[in-house]
Design a protein around this nucleic acid. Structure first.
Lengths: 297, 297
DNA sequence: CCATACGATAAGATTTGCTTATGCTGACAC
DNA sequence: GTGTCAGCATAAGCAAATCTTATCGTATGG
């Protein structure tokens, strides 16, 4: 098989027209270069240089081959340069999965901050429920997830970033104490409005209220928090909002946002990646930016 | 230094997504491939593949590098294919030097024949006197000469192709016997017309007539045989014409072409090339075509 | 004719790369 | 849980490619 080394040596020979000087340029001895050139000629099946008493001169074919060899070497150089540019941590493409109860509230402040912190990073964002993006992570279609922890999958490493406390969203004119405590009792005879099946936030809300999914089979499954808030504003019941969503969703004048008493229930927001990901060590830095974005929001 | 082998192995790994199968495809053992991939990653300074429990998947950078590696390999393949196409003897560029007393008479039949015999050969023809083209041959600016032998230069190999007899061109109404014999006597009181200094034909004609260059300092130096023939036709003197030129130059009705008696003087037409030329062995075939062209002419 | 320059050749040392054998880890089945 | 399997990494020894130094052959130029 042809080797790059032979092309490099031949290129030097073609440029310098002299075995000895070419060998010097390649930092090898003259016989070593001679042998490699001879081998190259044997592999290609034709003479590339004409050995003359004073130096060498290329054959017609040799000139063409030298040009092509230079082309190959340029492309290899491009390849290594490209690789070097990619040695910057968090550069290039990164496919990020985000759950729907985080994406709309964190991304607006996160994305500009990421652009600024990792200018070489190109994000590819996919928004879907936990199960979906987890499967995609394991598939290799996603590299990193931003979601609510814990997720229980071996082969996935996670990093907790911050806790996102829940608030009770109640219709105006309710009689909930402030702060609210003992949710299970409070909601005994009230409707708890939830997202549709599959959203982790649904399960978290149920857990906070000490309910099982089956306890309230009648609960309507909204597809977005915005819808849930509309429903609360129209007196259809109560819901739990993550603090992160308050800025965007809690603006309605028809609802009251009631903080919850200690111990304030919250969800853990964090990152997840394949244990085998070679980028693992970079994700801490990514997480720091997410934390910063949250404070800004 | 990066090696082509590493790119080849990595390409197989990228295509097959499996160290074992890639190793099979490369006809090496799995550890061998692992080591080369590891080395490649170390050189490039970044991970290219993510080792996962069931097979591997490329990193974002790995995908880009794989693409570039494929490009490099394609270019190398082009290079070797090109070289193979050049293994055909007498293909590609060939710079041929021809002397003026041969070029106009042989090339018209030679060139089509060469095109037909060596379709891959691209001729680059330079017409000049022996000294000039000999120097250019030694310079490497020419690869092959078609001229009159002998030429006396070490470092140059020659091949005699055929003898080209001389004829005496005389003005109509001369009193030269047929065939002409004993030229020195015949021309004792006549003008011998010659080409200008530098043409080998001038020296050959002088030799045939047993004259030294200085014996006839008054001889006019024509620059072409056509001019010489015109001068003969106008009664200005005699000249010697090589047989090869007769078809073209001897058509004038104002001259007589007198064959010379045995031993018929002639010039040797042949090829010359640098002893060091790697094409040396191909030139015999080239010579055969020249001989064929002469018969046709 | 000798001295010099240049590339080829030869023999031995070194490095590179490969192979077989074995280790380690996560996935899957019972 | 425990055993088995798949898949890649590691280790040790060996073979092949590559390099080095020393030397030769040949053409060149004084």
């Amino acid at each position: 098989m042809l080797t790059l080394r032979q092309l490099r040596y031949f290129d030097a020979l073609a440029r310098l027209g002299h075995f000895g000087r070419a060998a010097d340029a390649c930092a090898i001895s003259q016989p070593a270069l001679s042998m490699q050139i001879r081998d190259l000629e044997a592999r290609l099946g034709l003479p590339l240089v004409e050995r003359r008493p004073n130096g060498v001169c290329l054959t017609a074919a040799g000139r063409d081959i030298a040009e092509r060899a230079a082309g190959v070497m340029a492309e290899v150089r491009d390849l290594t340069d490209f690789a070097k540019s990619r040695t910057i941590p968090l550069s290039g493409d990164l496919s990020l999965g985000v759950i729907p109860s985080i994406a709309p509230y964190l991304l607006p402040s996160l994305l500009p901050l990421l652009r600024q912190t990792f200018p070489e990073l190109t994000l590819n964002i996919h928004e879907a429920q936990t199960d979906t993006i987890t499967a995609e992570l394991l598939d290799g279609r996603l590299d990193l997830l931003l979601l609510a922890l814990p997720i229980d999958t071996a082969a996935i490493d996670t990093l907790h970033l911050f806790d996102d406390p829940f608030l009770l969203a109640a219709p105006k004119g309710h009689n909930v104490p402030h702060p609210a405590r003992c949710l299970p009792d409070l909601l005994q005879d009230e409707q708890l409005l939830l997202l549709e099946e599959g959203h982790c936030l649904r399960d978290q809300a149920l857990a906070v209220c000490a309910l099982r999914n089956t306890d309230r089979t009648d609960t309507f499954g909204a597809s977005t928090l915005a819808t849930l808030v509309q429903m609360v504003a129209n007196g259809m019941g109560f819901t739990l909002l993550p603090e992160m969503a308050v800025q965007v969703e809690g603006r309605s004048s028809d609802i009251d946002l009631v903080p919850l008493a200690d111990p304030v229930p919250s969800r853990s927001v964090g990152l997840a990646w394949r244990k085998s990901s070679p980028l693992a060590q970079d994700f801490a830095a990514f997480g720091d930016v997410v934390k910063k974005a949250r404070k800004k929001a």
